[in-house]
Design a protein around this nucleic acid. Structure first.
Lengths: 144, 144
DNA sequence: GTGTTTGCAAAGTGTTTGCAATTTA
DNA sequence: TAAATTGCAAACACTTTGCAAACAC
């Protein structure tokens, strides 16, 4: 599951993005483990912790380039901040309200075979169906 | 379906909110017709058009008081702006991406009888299940 | 070398807040 | 009159942008 920097480089090239120092580093932070949900702020902090200088502007620009290139998906669950999700396959999310953390829900765990369509619209105009299950308590909630 | 100002006044009193000039006016804009999805900006514009002076700060404060009092529901579908939904019953939304408009989907049109739960969590910790169906084309899209 | 990318600082957007003046009960 | 509410202006958090310097190919 570990994606080394060669993979990141290839990924960028395939997407038509030059493998610059900054993109390689942000990409390796994003893709060197399990699927993640990060904010621009978090990623910026991580890159500073890794002693790699990247400006906030570049973090934002890069994240959006990755989204445009379908290397990431943007998830909006609360006003103010965007999450960037390394899982680009269709799926859904738990949102833990206390912490703001997201957790993936595989698409097949939610039955959405019969979605409604608005007046005069057909399936091919649906760009996505997003389900967010908001969880009041914290992640490891004991269920009484 | 028309809610006159007496209704608004009653609604506010029941919710424990004093029926001030501003709340009565915003309430009557919100509740004098079909269910609506408005932004703070829109509501502020509407109140100015009705020749009623209300400050932006008061629009925001009032909307949040209404949300806290369960007279409204806040819907977040894109970063930056919040929508306030006069339909407080459980339901879902179409989001028309071109216009940013929302349209209600009655809860019973989407089958969500078997929702998954995160590790160590039970139904009673679920505060809501929100489905957003994003529609690429405009509202009156002809389907070829 | 040429076009792309970066990073700073400034501007932008939507929202929240402190506090004095006003209004409500 | 006492407590709640309003509105201004300033502060806020997050994000975007213009442009000169740095970089990749």
């Amino acid at each position: 599951m570990q994606a080394d920097s060669l993979d990141v480089s290839d990924r960028l090239k395939t997407a038509g993005l030059r493998p610059t120092r900054q993109r390689l580093m942000l990409g390796s932070l994003l893709w060197s483990g399990d699927d993640r949900h990060v904010t621009a702020e978090q990623l910026h902090t991580e890159s500073r912790e890794a002693n790699m200088q990247v400006s906030m502007a570049t973090v934002y620009n890069t994240l959006h380039q990755f989204v445009d290139a379908k290397l990431l998906r943007e998830v909006i669950v609360d006003g103010g901040r965007s999450y960037f999700d390394t899982n680009t396959a269709p799926h859904h999310h738990f949102l833990f309200e206390q912490t703001g953390h997201l957790q993936d829900i595989p698409a097949d765990q939610i039955n959405l075979t019969q979605i409604p369509l608005p007046e005069g619209c057909c399936e091919k105009y649906i760009s996505s169906v997003d389900v967010i299950i908001r969880v009041r308590s914290h992640e490891a909630a004991a269920c009484v």
